[in-house]
Design a protein around this nucleic acid. Sequence first.
DNA 1: CGATCAAAGTTAACAGCGCAAACATACCGG
DNA 2: CCGGTATGTTTGCGCTGTTAACTTTGATCG
Lengths: 189, 189
Amino acid sequence: MSTSARDGYHHGDLRAALLRSATEMLEEGEPFSLRAVAKRAGVSATAPYRHYADKDALESALAAEGFRDLGERLAAAGEFAELGVAYVAFALERPALFRLMFGNPCDDANDERVRAAVDIRRFVTRLVAAAFPDADARALATAGWALVHGLAFLHLDGKLPAGDPAEVALRVRTSTAAIMAAGGPAAAG
Amino acid sequence: MSTSARDGYHHGDLRAALLRSATEMLEEGEPFSLRAVAKRAGVSATAPYRHYADKDALESALAAEGFRDLGERLAAAGEFAELGVAYVAFALERPALFRLMFGNPCDDANDERVRAAVDIRRFVTRLVAAAFPDADARALATAGWALVHGLAFLHLDGKLPAGDPAEVALRVRTSTAAIMAAGGPAAAG
DNA sequence: CGATCAAAGTTAACAGCGCAAACATACCGG
DNA sequence: CCGGTATGTTTGCGCTGTTAACTTTGATCG
């Protein structure tokens, strides 16, 4: 009965089962309610409260998992220039999860998800520092993150056409190149 | 009884009153439900349905209004370099509205809000073309929009500290300058 | 002026939501 | 074997968006 056997009453590992059910529902674009997640896991509507304080807690767990996945995705991209493409691709492939990761007020300070987000930031900053040793790595990392984050959301919200992944990737590369090449005129502060 | 007199039963101009109530609630950070908006306007819970098909319709109207406001705000910024600062400031001053404007799936194609968003894009593109006559104005406008949009959301979601407006403005300027100065290494595609 | 009709409100009701309290079951250590 | 605790269940509350049926009102027209 190690991890996920259900013996009729006790579930075995409901915590993990809930996470899995919730992830599936996000992936399938279903409405996502606590009750629906519970039902999908084959359990009563209030059973999740034994494992998560409230809906936010479940969402935080999902978000943290999402940040880990995103981190792996970025790490797999390897090359600096492809980071943005990977970031936007992740957002468009798993839009509901991405919205859940961001798009929340998210005021919990000492959370697991906060650490995951910080990890990503550190990772990107290191890559930036390596690629642009002369630049202000901190500022450039912020700008780069904001750029791809903005591209992700604008595609997600239909402000930029997101139909064809290849077209999206091209737009990411093109706009990134354009702003990096923009050089002098009115940039300062 | 011209615009907003209430004669006991008929309201006078409930449509506008609902918009006003909803805007106030967004501004005050209140939970925003259709019922609450109706109550605030001094009207029964289902009265709004005489003027808006559903909650989404009300939200779209609010979003459209928000886009007009944002447009004015950007126009007032005038100088190209201050566009981003104005954009992010707007987002932080009216976070609930900003989330409503974006942050929705928003699949309605022929909407008033779509036009408003397109107007902003056009406006920014024109400014970009004027400031950087040599560049690919389209790509640069996309990148610029994405950059400030990303900065706005990252601040909104607590991924970047948003306490002091002056500090935020400085970060916008600094990161913008940083990415525009980044020039050559790994940009292309 | 009075009848009528549509516009713009009302109440009642439904299903679904997050969540809390009280109760039931089953495993685990004494 | 027995009791306690972790982990389920049922029940119920107040909220949500939305529909249906009813009522009030102001406007139009003979």
